[in-house]
């Protein structure tokens, strides 16, 4: 009798696990991974370097997806992440290459600017009830303009234009080299470590902090949350602020990797970030999902792109295939048995 009851609980636990979004996201990842084993491009898929580069490549997108996850769980969306990445990449390069400011100050300013821009969209959304899509669309356009204004429309690199029309090359600031390096016998990139830290921060926010509970509650049923005394305005403000903060982190990493601040950097990155969150299984309707899913989603997209690139699939086919696979993965998440 008892063992029978235990069996049924184990049974129902197993069934719950099979139906859980984490399991589904893992299956999608596994599927892509198996594709990699099959189409291994003469064994290059079996080299650790391939995986390390995949992780390095996906890190910037993954960091953007971290903030995007918080926002999407509140039933919102943040279209401005790509532009904010561009803006902070420009600012970071300007301050550290042109002005020669210390990394601590430069990084702090960039993070502040990112968070402030995010909170500005958050304020428009929470206080003035502008739809997230519209408010962050406006921020996307505005921040791109700001990036172009700050950079004078030029890439901010180590080649500095002199009065007499010649270029003088300045030294690359050490912070760039550090962010662009690989640690532990060149086995993992610094930006990848930063991505992992961002994932951990979001995990703490969503699972350990009261604020995280507020984020879920607002996404689940905003009116019920408000009537339960949850500070809706502050919560949303901070969620978009956090998204802006992570954009700045991503912007700094991007600038370090490119050794320059490109005002055009991050174009369409918002779409990749949303795709990562959605492939992970976080629902655009809000209230559901988690950062672990986003991590798996980032891996899935990362491997997908890596496999296509090591097999030298042309860009046209790559884009089409990516579109098909995104739909496939999301459909797979929807099926319930």
């Amino acid at each position: 009798m008892t063992s029978n009851a235990r069996n049924t609980t184990q049974d129902s636990q197993r069934r719950a696990w099979l139906r859980s979004p984490v399991f589904r996201a893992l299956v999608a990842l596994l599927f892509v991974f198996l594709l990699g084993l099959a189409f291994n491009a003469d064994g290059s898929f079996f080299k650790w370097d391939t995986h390390r580069d995949m992780l390095r490549h996906i890190s910037v997108f993954g960091i953007l997806a971290c903030g995007m996850t918080l926002v999407i769980i509140t039933a919102g969306i943040d279209l401005s992440v790509g532009s904010l990445l561009g803006l902070t990449a420009v600012l970071f390069s300007l301050f550290s290459i042109r002005m020669g400011w210390s990394p601590a100050i430069t990084i702090s300013i960039c993070l502040l600017v990112g968070a402030a821009c995010g909170m500005l969209s958050g304020g428009l959304i929470a206080k003035f009830k502008i739809q997230p899509f519209i408010a962050t669309l406006a921020m996307m356009v505005f921040a791109r303009g700001l990036a172009k204004w700050a950079s004078g429309g030029q890439k901010v690199s180590t080649a500095v234009l002199q009065r007499d029309g010649t270029y003088k090359y300045v030294d690359v600031p050490p912070i760039f080299n550090f962010l662009n390096s690989k640690l532990i016998h060149e086995n993992i990139a610094v930006v990848t470590l930063i991505f992992f830290i961002c994932i951990f921060i979001c995990w703490v926010i969503l699972n350990k902090l009261r604020w995280g509970r507020h984020i879920y509650a607002i996404g689940g049923n905003e009116e019920a949350a408000r009537l339960s005394g949850i500070p809706v305005l502050t919560t949303k403000l901070l969620a978009y602020g956090a998204s802006g903060f992570f954009c700045a982190v991503a912007g700094i990493c991007q600038a370090a990797q490119e050794l320059q601040g490109d005002p055009e950097a991050g174009m369409t990155y918002e779409l990749t970030a949303i795709a990562i969150v959605v492939i992970g299984g976080t629902n655009l309707m809000g209230g559901k999902g988690g950062i672990g899913l986003t991590f798996i989603g980032a891996m899935t997209i990362g491997y997908l792109e890596k496999i296509l690139s090591i097999n030298a699939v042309g860009e046209a086919s790559r884009l089409m295939l990516t579109g098909v696979i995104i739909v496939g993965a999301v459909l797979f998440q929807k099926f319930r048995r």
Partner: peptide, 29 residues
């Protein structure tokens, strides 16, 4: 349905959602 429950949350979370202050120590649940 519209102004009471938070459907995505479990029973515990629905019970404590209006009094999270008393279950959080400087913001930690």
């Amino acid at each position: 349905k519209d102004t009471g429950i938070i459907p995505e949350m479990n029973i515990v979370q629905n019970i404590t959602v209006a009094s999270l202050e008393s279950f959080a120590l400087i913001g930690w649940m």
